[in-house]
């Protein structure tokens, strides 16, 4: 018996594993996309301190 022979269990779970993998990949893409949009729109820009702008 070959070491690489696939058990029936692995065959049955392949679809489930691919599904979970795609969901995780989509999650990463969404978080990355949201971060890019928020950063480029300046949502995370720190407000300048009053003292600095006044030159004090």
């Amino acid at each position: 018996m070959s070491l690489v022979k696939e058990h029936e269990l692995h065959k049955r779970r392949r679809g489930r594993n691919i599904g979970v993998g795609l969901v995780l990949a989509a999650f990463i893409a969404i978080i990355f996309g949201l971060t890019v949009v928020k950063v480029t729109r300046g949502d995370f820009q720190m407000q300048q301190q009053q003292g600095v702008t006044d030159g004090n």
């Binding site: 029936e8 269990l9 049955r12 779970r13 679809g15 489930r16 691919i18 599904g19 979970v20």
Partner: peptide, 15 residues
């Protein structure tokens, strides 16, 4: 009969 016959597939979780 496979013991894994009734194991959930991805579609079952989606359902």
């Amino acid at each position: 009969a496979s013991p894994y016959e009734n194991e959930a597939q991805f579609g079952d979780y989606f359902a």
